[in-house]
Each structure stands twice: as structure tokens, then as C-alpha cells.
């Protein structure tokens, strides 16, 4: 995968673009439907999922992104991005929409408020080089995992990194650490 979009409506999209650049990929900032053309994959960054959900609608991006994802475009969602990919959102707003390409239920802000945000070394299945330095910011957890979803890492019994086909999702923020292994995993998949 070389030309990869980063949803750039709000949040930490720039940090994802920098990670892609460091791995030699071409990052494209996605703000309008036209920006989607020719993309081989899409990253949905951390930020506020309620804000991003609203801006996706206002920008006319929701349907075109949903179509591309339904066609099988690879996607990597982190934190709010994971919420946007999930099949079911718990403790969200009633009008909050998601793409539903990852068969999981996520619970927003499940680790608590910012005083409970944390860093931890997380063991990731199949990832060489030791634990991954994971940064959790008002992070969601996965409450339910459907058949066909592979859990790659867990914290306190809750899945925090999982994969279903070409969709990868993390409750934490690989873009806030200097560790590029998960971005690499996404590009190679």
C-alpha cells in the first residue's frame, strides 16, 4: 500500500501522516469526497468521535467513505477512529453514526476521564520486537467481539487492538508514540 488517506477533519491526523511519511508511504489529507480518489487505504485518527461524525455528514464524506469501506478498502482506526469503524457504539450520542465494518461493540470513554488516561506496554500477538508503547487517552474499550474478529491485544481483559479482514482498529494511539510497527503492519497487510 502506498497512497493512503488520513481523515483530516479533526484530531491527531497530522501525527498519522508523519508516521506514514516516515515509512515511505504517500499520505493524503481527506476533507472532501474528491480526496478519496485513488486511495489504497484510509486511516481514521484519534480525536472527538462526536465531532468527526458530525463533520463527516456536513462534508458529504460519510456515504462515499462508507461505500469505499464496503468495497473492501483497508482501514486503520485509532481511538475515535475505532469508534467510527465499529458496528455498535455504547455510551455515545443517539445521533452518532459509524461505518459498521468492524463487528464489535465499543464503549466510549470506558477507562474514565482524562485523569485515568495512561501509557502502558501492551503485548501484541504476532508483533516482533517486544511490547508496544500504547497511549490511552479517554479511551474506548471493546465490550463484544463478533465472529471473524481477531483480537491482537488486550488490557484488563478488554480487547484494545483487533483486526477483521483488512480493517485494523486500536483503542489507543500508536500515532502518539515513535513506534511505527502498527502503521507498518497496516501498510503491509
Amino acid at each position: 500500500m502506498h497512497k493512503v488517506g488520513v481523515l483530516a477533519l479533526q484530531g491527531a491526523w497530522q501525527r498519522h501522516a508523519e508516521a506514514l511519511g516516515a515509512l515511505g508511504a504517500h499520505a493524503v489529507e481527506v476533507r472532501t469526497p474528491e480526496d478519496l480518489s485513488g486511495l489504497e487505504g484510509l486511516i481514521l485518527p484519534g480525536g472527538e468521535s462526536t465531532t468527526m461524525s458530525r463533520l463527516l455528514e456536513l462534508s458529504g464524506l460519510f456515504e462515499p467513505v462508507a461505500e469505499r469501506l464496503a468495497e473492501g478498502m483497508p482501514a486503520f482506526g485509532t481511538c475515535a477512529g475505532m469508534i467510527l469503524l465499529a458496528g455498535e457504539i455504547r455510551d455515545g450520542r443517539p445521533d452518532q453514526r459509524s461505518f459498521g465494518v468492524l463487528d464489535v461493540s465499543v464503549r466510549r470513554n470506558a477507562f474514565g476521564r482524562q485523569v485515568d488516561s495512561f501509557e502502558a506496554d501492551v503485548a501484541v500477538d504476532g508483533l516482533g520486537g517486544g511490547g508496544f508503547p500504547a497511549v490511552f487517552i479517554r479511551a474506548p474499550v471493546i465490550d463484544r467481539v463478533g465472529d471473524g474478529v481477531e483480537v491482537l491485544a488486550s488490557v484488563g481483559g478488554h480487547p484494545v487492538l483487533c483486526r477483521q479482514g483488512r480493517v485494523l482498529a486500536a483503542a489507543f494511539h500508536p500515532e502518539l508514540s515513535d513506534d511505527l510497527r502498527l502503521h507498518q503492519l497496516f501498510l503491509e497487510d
Binding site: 491527531a12 472527538e48 481511538c79 475515535a80 485523569v115 495512561f118 501509557e119 494511539h173
Partner: peptide
């Protein structure tokens, strides 16, 4: 909890907002 990366991390998430 409460490391610089965690504290600055929330500000990163508010960018563009």
C-alpha cells in the same frame, strides 16, 4: 497516568476543533 505524553496527548486529540 499523568505523564507528559498522556497530558499533551489529549491536546493532540482536540486539534482542528
Amino acid at each position: 497516568t499523568g505523564s507528559s505524553r498522556v497530558k499533551r496527548g489529549l491536546a493532540e486529540m482536540l486539534k482542528g476543533g
